[in-house]
């Protein structure tokens, strides 16, 4: 199924577009907190960045020149990996998973909370929300495009 770029966008295209908005917002936010505000970046955050940043770059390739359903699948895999990493990270924060000695050097433990908005919004929580939204949007785009 292809959609000419002059025609009004299809539902699948709009879902993929929404996913890109989420990925781009998350990418810029992570860069803002790390590079502008100067928050320390723990290893778990880097692992999640590894899958979030490419989403912001590759998803538009599925939008232009026409909807490319293969990109939806690729994005879904990255987002699913990110969601697992974010859940694991939150597990460390709440103490469900003991922090391994290996990954957290340079005095930046992954369990440390550097931001807490409204009492419960932490960076790992934001990450879970972003990746879960991405999985939902991309899965919806996948099924829409395969009907």
């Amino acid at each position: 199924m292809t959609v000419s770029s002059s025609a009004p966008p299809s539902p699948a295209w709009l879902l993929l577009f929404a996913a890109w908005i989420v990925a781009a917002t998350a990418t810029l936010s992570a860069l803002f907190l790390g590079e502008v505000v100067g928050l320390p970046i723990c290893p778990m955050c880097w692992y999640q960045r590894i899958v979030m940043f490419p989403l912001a770059v590759i998803l538009p390739f599925g939008l232009f020149p026409d909807l490319d359903v293969r990109v939806i699948r690729q994005g879904l895999v990255l987002a699913a990996i990110g969601l697992l990493l974010a859940l694991y990270h939150q597990g460390i924060v709440v103490g469900l998973i003991p922090e391994a000695i290996g990954p957290c050097r340079q005095g930046i433990p992954c369990a440390e909370t550097v931001i807490r908005w409204f009492g419960f919004v932490t960076i790992p929580v934001l990450s879970i929300v972003a990746f879960a939204t991405l999985v939902a949007l991309l899965a919806a785009a996948h099924f829409r495009s395969h009907r």
Binding site: S5, S6, P9, W13, F17, W20, I21, A24, T25, L28, L31, F32, V36, V37, P60, L63, F64
Partner: peptide, 27 residues
């Protein structure tokens, strides 16, 4: 709205928001 316009508009908006936030933070 044409898809390309939609995309370009969103991209510009995101970068604009980033630039404004950076200016506020570093001022």
């Amino acid at each position: 709205m044409k898809p390309k316009t939609l995309f370009a508009g969103a991209l510009a908006l995101l970068f604009f928001a980033f630039a404004v936030a950076t200016l506020i933070q570093t001022a």
